[in-house]
Measured scan of single mutants.
Amino acid sequence: PKDEAKKKVKEAIKRGDEETAKRIAKKYNLDWDDAKREADEER
Rank of each mutant, 00 (worst) to 15 (best):
25 A>P: 00
9 V>Y: 05
18 E>R: 05
24 I>C: 07
18 E>Q: 07
4 E>H: 11
26 K>F: 11
40 D>S: 09
2 K>S: 11
39 A>F: 11
33 D>V: 08
14 K>P: 01
6 K>G: 04
39 A>D: 05
33 D>L: 10
22 K>F: 07
13 I>P: 00
6 K>I: 14
35 A>I: 15
42 E>D: 10
42 E>T: 08
3 D>Q: 11
34 D>T: 13
1 P>M: 14
8 K>Q: 13
2 K>Q: 13
41 E>R: 10
13 I>A: 02
10 K>L: 15
8 K>C: 15
18 E>Y: 15
39 A>V: 13
22 K>D: 01
25 A>Y: 02
30 L>E: 00
16 G>P: 00
13 I>V: 03
42 E>L: 06
21 A>F: 00
18 E>I: 15
12 A>V: 02
14 K>D: 07
29 N>I: 02
6 K>Q: 07
37 R>T: 06
10 K>S: 06
1 P>G: 14
27 K>L: 15
16 G>L: 02
22 K>H: 06
16 G>Y: 03
22 K>E: 04
32 W>L: 08
28 Y>K: 03
15 R>P: 01
17 D>I: 01
43 R>A: 13
9 V>Q: 00
32 W>D: 01
20 T>Q: 10
22 K>Q: 07
7 K>W: 13
23 R>S: 09
26 K>Y: 10
1 P>A: 14
18 E>W: 15
11 E>Y: 05
7 K>N: 11
3 D>T: 11
26 K>H: 09
32 W>H: 01
21 A>Q: 00
8 K>M: 15
25 A>T: 02
4 E>C: 14
7 K>M: 12
32 W>N: 01
27 K>G: 02
34 D>Q: 13
23 R>H: 08
38 E>G: 05
26 K>T: 08
23 R>E: 11
42 E>V: 06
12 A>I: 03
34 D>V: 12
22 K>T: 03
32 W>C: 05
5 A>K: 03
22 K>V: 04
11 E>S: 06
25 A>H: 00
1 P>I: 14
16 G>E: 02
17 D>G: 01
21 A>T: 00
35 A>N: 04
9 V>N: 01
37 R>N: 07
19 E>L: 10
27 K>D: 10
12 A>Y: 14
5 A>H: 07
9 V>A: 04
33 D>T: 08
3 D>I: 11
27 K>P: 00
8 K>G: 03
39 A>K: 03
4 E>D: 12
30 L>Q: 01
31 D>F: 03
36 K>I: 13
27 K>I: 12
23 R>I: 10
1 P>V: 14
35 A>G: 03
20 T>A: 12
1 P>Y: 13
19 E>F: 10
12 A>T: 02
20 T>F: 10
9 V>T: 02
19 E>P: 05
8 K>F: 11
10 K>V: 14
29 N>V: 02
24 I>D: 01
22 K>M: 13
23 R>Y: 10
5 A>S: 03
22 K>C: 13
16 G>K: 03
